[in-house]
Design a protein around this nucleic acid. Sequence first.
DNA 1: CATGTTGTGGGACGATCGTTCAGGTACCTT
DNA 2: AAGGTACCTGAACGATCGTCCCACAACATG
Lengths: 186, 186
Amino acid sequence: MRQQRDGRKARGDKRRQEIIEATLRVIERDGVAGVTHRTVAAEAGVPTTSTTYHFSSLNDLLIATLISCAQDMATEVYWMIDRARSRGSRGADEVAALLAAALGPHRGRTMAEYELYLLAARRPELRPAARRWLDVLTSMVRPDDLVALRAFLAGIDGLLIQGLIDDEPPKADELRPVVDHLLQPR
Amino acid sequence: MRQQRDGRKARGDKRRQEIIEATLRVIERDGVAGVTHRTVAAEAGVPTTSTTYHFSSLNDLLIATLISCAQDMATEVYWMIDRARSRGSRGADEVAALLAAALGPHRGRTMAEYELYLLAARRPELRPAARRWLDVLTSMVRPDDLVALRAFLAGIDGLLIQGLIDDEPPKADELRPVVDHLLQPR
DNA sequence: CATGTTGTGGGACGATCGTTCAGGTACCTT
DNA sequence: AAGGTACCTGAACGATCGTCCCACAACATG
């Protein structure tokens, strides 16, 4: 009978997920360079060999982390666009607030996302996962809006990356004019 | 007398520069993660200890490489903007062509630049160097154009980063409409 | 020529790395 | 109860890492 999951597999999957989450925390803290079997295991509170058992190599661990991360990112940006639309001409406020949050409280997470993003540039097998959130958004708009959306999303990426090397995170007020400029139709 | 440079220092500076250039080649090929004293030394054709002598730590080597890299980048983008301006409404063609080149023939170099860029996000001492090219461009425009320039530069960054995870580099023709959209005044 | 300075490079040290292995435990199937 | 499967983990291996040390050569300075 398969009504009940295999207890062993259930615990295995749970630990697997915990390892992935620990990996993301390590990347937020120390970057991709800080990801080793030992640091991840310590962060997750499991023995070192546990990470090698569940992920056949460090590469697989990074791939799994990127996929998990991209999934979250896609849904997050999806709802951001959705809320911004519902606010009509005040959509720029919504976007600027989210950018400010990504560069302030969630700065580590934002850095982690872009590091994984760049990792995908070097490893073709990671690219579909990294592209997913872009594809999700592309499917949201009418085809004739595509150029405007591409320009807008590119601007978002640029503002985030440039914001990461500011000495102190830019406030929503500083970002709003630029976001507004990016959103304005022509 | 100081008419003639110290022969020893002259050779030292030359080797120092060769090591920096070798470091950039290593980053282009294997990423920042591939930078070790040994790989850089092998790339430069010098003994391992030579890199530790000229750079007190691996960190210093990366800093020096970023500074050198940012310098080149600033001048390159400076002239791009200059040429684009001189072509008036056809400026988008110039920009799109440069982006296509950055994502095609110079893909490794572009990846290296953004990896160093992200490194600056984690190390405050690197940020002034990483920001330099942004500052140079900011000083090129009238203050009232600042928002438009910020949006444009952010869009450029976004297009480059997104182009890095495409399975094959986007052509200038595909980039031109988006660049044109970013350049259009409102 | 003597002395100090600067660059060169071979060798080695301890630390950390990814990964493997073998023995053990917990659970499911029959 | 027996056997198979899936998960767990301590110990260890060889490789590679950053860095240091020291002897030496090249050059400048007195």
